[in-house]
Computed example of a mutant assay.
Amino acid sequence: MNQVRLLKHLPRTTLDLDFTFGQETIALFGPSGAGKSLTLQAIAGLLRPDSGRIVINGTLLYDGEQNVALPPQARRIGYVMQDFALFPHLSVAENIVFGLDGLPRREQQARLAEMVSLLRLEGLEGRRPRQLSGGQQQRVALARALIIRPSLLLLDEPFAALDTPMRARLRRELLTVQRQLQLPTILVTHDLAEAHMLAERIAVLDEGRLLQIGAPAEVLRRPAALNVARFTGARNIFLGRLQRDESGWQMISRRATLPLRLPSEGSVYHDGILAQCMVRPEHITLVRPGEEPRRAGRRETLLQGTIVEELDHGLSHSLFFHLDNAGGTGPEHVDLEVELSHRSYELLGVVQRRQWTLAIKEEDVHLIGPAIPPHFEGPAPQPLPSILE
């Protein structure tokens, strides 16, 4: 098991993290300034923590109490930076073997051949970085990180500088390399789809602190904190009180004055508790006209609403609804956001209708963070911004 526990006070933030991981890929996800790249620098030995402990593959790299701090070159960590950091005056081959000083030349050449084959760099060995495409430079940087046979691979937004088609292809190639080498990896990314594709677990950071770490589906569907929900695109966030009736539990939202059925199995609620909940926009269904009676008895909430705005993203559409009996007027008043694929948008004939019945399954309504007791006298949670903001 690998361990990263570190505390570092910096002028604009404090890095305070503690997590463990195995033979897996962890994606560090969060906004700019959250501390993702600083975490990689601390693991690699480029930033010394004030305290903590870093153990990789059974080797103690840093321990503040024992005054252990191995230098970067002694840590056997492969590190691919966002700009690749290739040496412009060296050839591809010279860049790749740069970290193998001290090994016999025969061993260096054998490892070079292995990396050239693994990352499909045949015929490029004599070129300079300026003669390579962005994708080729990325593969050279990855080869240089892997040739030392590291115990851990660090990737700091390795695809950020590439165009969309190249990014998609190199993600697939990285997945292939990961399966072949079974190498623990920590990936920094701003791209949620990339984190979901490449990582077994996602660690969400904000202001130097770990908000949540878990499987991608768990982080997306069950965010542990309000900022996790916001960072991962859960734009329908409501504040309200929990209430129980003969049909089960529901939350009565303050903003939209609407009831949302809550999951019953495996949950413990308290009547009157003030809480926040979220519904992801892609988990809301538009019900065809006349189908409402056939949905009777389902464990879901049915709402009536009118589309007041929509955005066409090409492959998907964002629909912004004002709900009936929800209060508020004007086209700028939005209660709910729904996301549909372009195919669903066409099949439903959304362009021809403005008024719809919306269905939200109870298992798709998630309570965020700790609830607030009904007689709580402290300050209420801050008002939530419009979902258009």
Rank of each mutant, 00 (worst) to 15 (best):
M1A: 14
V4H: 01
V4D: 01
L6T: 02
L6A: 15
K8F: 06
R12M: 11
R12P: 05
L15P: 03
D16Q: 03
L17M: 04
G22Y: 06
T25F: 01
I26C: 04
I26G: 01
I26S: 04
L28Y: 02
F29H: 07
K36G: 04
S37N: 03
A42Y: 02
G45N: 11
G45T: 03
L46V: 01
N57K: 13
T59D: 12
L61K: 03
Y62M: 13
Y62C: 04
E65W: 00
P72Y: 04
Q73Y: 13
A74T: 05
A74E: 15
G78E: 01
Y79I: 03
F84V: 06
A85M: 08
S91Q: 07
V92C: 11
V97W: 05
V97F: 09
G102D: 04
G102T: 04
R105W: 04
Q108N: 06
Q109D: 13
L118G: 10
L119F: 10
L121R: 11
G123Q: 11
E125T: 11
R128H: 13
P129D: 03
P129C: 08
R130S: 14
R130K: 12
Q131W: 02
G135T: 09
Q138M: 06
R144G: 07
L152F: 10
L153E: 10
L154I: 12
L155I: 05
D156Y: 06
E157F: 07
P158N: 10
L162Y: 14
T164F: 09
T164Q: 12
T164N: 04
R167I: 02
A168D: 12
R169V: 09
E173P: 02
E173G: 05
L174T: 05
I186Y: 13
L187M: 11
D191N: 14
M197H: 07
M197V: 15
L205R: 03
L205V: 03
D206Y: 10
L211I: 06
L211F: 07
A215S: 12
P216T: 12
P216Y: 08
V219H: 03
F238T: 06
G240I: 08
R244F: 01
E246V: 08
R254L: 13
R254N: 11
E265K: 14
G266I: 00
S267D: 02
S267P: 00
D271Q: 15
G272F: 00
Q276A: 14
M278N: 02
R280C: 00
R280L: 09
P281V: 08
R288D: 11
E292Y: 00
P293E: 06
R295I: 07
R295M: 14
A296W: 01
R298G: 14
T301M: 00
L303A: 13
E310R: 14
G314K: 06
S316T: 15
G327M: 13
G327F: 11
L336I: 08
E337D: 03
E339Y: 01
S341Y: 07
H342R: 14
S344G: 12
E346I: 12
L347G: 00
L348K: 10
A359V: 01
A359D: 04
K361H: 15
E362R: 01
E363V: 14
E363H: 13
V365R: 00
P374K: 09
G378Q: 00
P379E: 15
Q382N: 07
L384M: 02
P385M: 06
L388A: 04
